[in-house]
Design a protein around this nucleic acid. Structure first.
Lengths: 156, 156
DNA sequence: AAAATATAGTACTTGTCAAGTACGATATCA
DNA sequence: TGATATCGTACTTGACAAGTACTATATTTT
């Protein structure tokens, strides 16, 4: 369901790995790739993009590598997805226009152009905005205990 | 962001159109295609799939067409998305296995295989399960008034 | 009965993009 | 100086989304 690209997957893996690391230790692309069994060269490209956008800081040269820039709690999954999937790739709405960093469609709720998919995508984007990187790397044991007994039974 | 296919879009459009119609009136593929400006032949394929799955009922012959089967409130967008996007198209988890109609990964919450994308996709699927067809075809004017003043400001 | 309309089934084409690879340049450390 | 690692860019290739086409079948209308 829902084709998130491998690039997005690798990006999340890399970020999660960096978020795991203590403090500001540097991790090389090769190190991350080896530990998670992903093609090195592709992960390099992904990290380049993450660096270009400012989500990670790169240090060149021997003993170089990457380091997370912000706090895991501040980085939303939506940022990563948007980076790799591109901001928009859907049937064009006649009335939509692009703004600085987001798609503005001020009539999104009343859009008469019969594009239900607009609303769905908006819904998904909203959902992803609420998921932070921290939630992806939180120690699984603790998460499990908390989640299993609470209201998240819909996660079956 | 997030490549939902056109097919899904057309499927939602068709379902929304049928949900709009009064009672159990039949709508032909051509009628729907004309009104929403989508390629006829493609919409036909989409409707065929919707019929094969049982979301709509088809009536052949002259004056034939399609009719919604269930109640719009009972049809979740996730059903439609799953139908057209396929159930899974993501990096394979070593431990996941397929069941009758869903992917079972009982260790999804504790999966150590560093696949954050699993959680994200699960999150999206959950989100889509909560959106019904009824919400996509609700009279826009009313929705707007209600939504604008309430808690949905995150829909910016 | 025949013509018209509409779905059923299936198979095909084509352009785009995800996925992965490659390589020379640059920067840093030992 | 050599080893390591990122940077930038460009290329290949296989898969699939998007759309088309055609034949068969069913129902209504004339």
């Amino acid at each position: 369901m829902l084709g998130l690209t491998k690039k997005t997957g690798y990006g999340l893996i890399a970020l999660a790995h960096l978020a795991h690391g203590e403090g500001d230790r540097l991790c090389s692309a090769r190190e991350i790739a080896d530990q998670h069994d992903v093609p090195v060269s592709l992960l390099m490209n992904v990290l380049k993009e993450l660096a270009a956008v400012g989500l990670v800081k790169s240090v060149r040269g021997s003993r170089g590598g990457y380091r997370l820039v912000g706090e895991p709690e501040e980085i939303s999954v939506a940022d990563v997805v948007t980076l790799f999937e591109g901001p928009v790739r859907m049937s064009e709405c006649a009335r939509h226009r692009e703004d600085d960093d987001h798609v503005a469609c001020d009539v999104i709720d009343t859009c008469p152009s019969a594009d239900p998919i607009h609303r769905v995508q908006r819904r998904i984007a909203d959902c992803l905005k609420t998921v932070t990187l921290a939630e992806l790397v939180v120690p699984q044991q603790r998460t499990r205990g908390a989640r299993k007994d609470e209201k998240v039974k819909s996660w079956r």
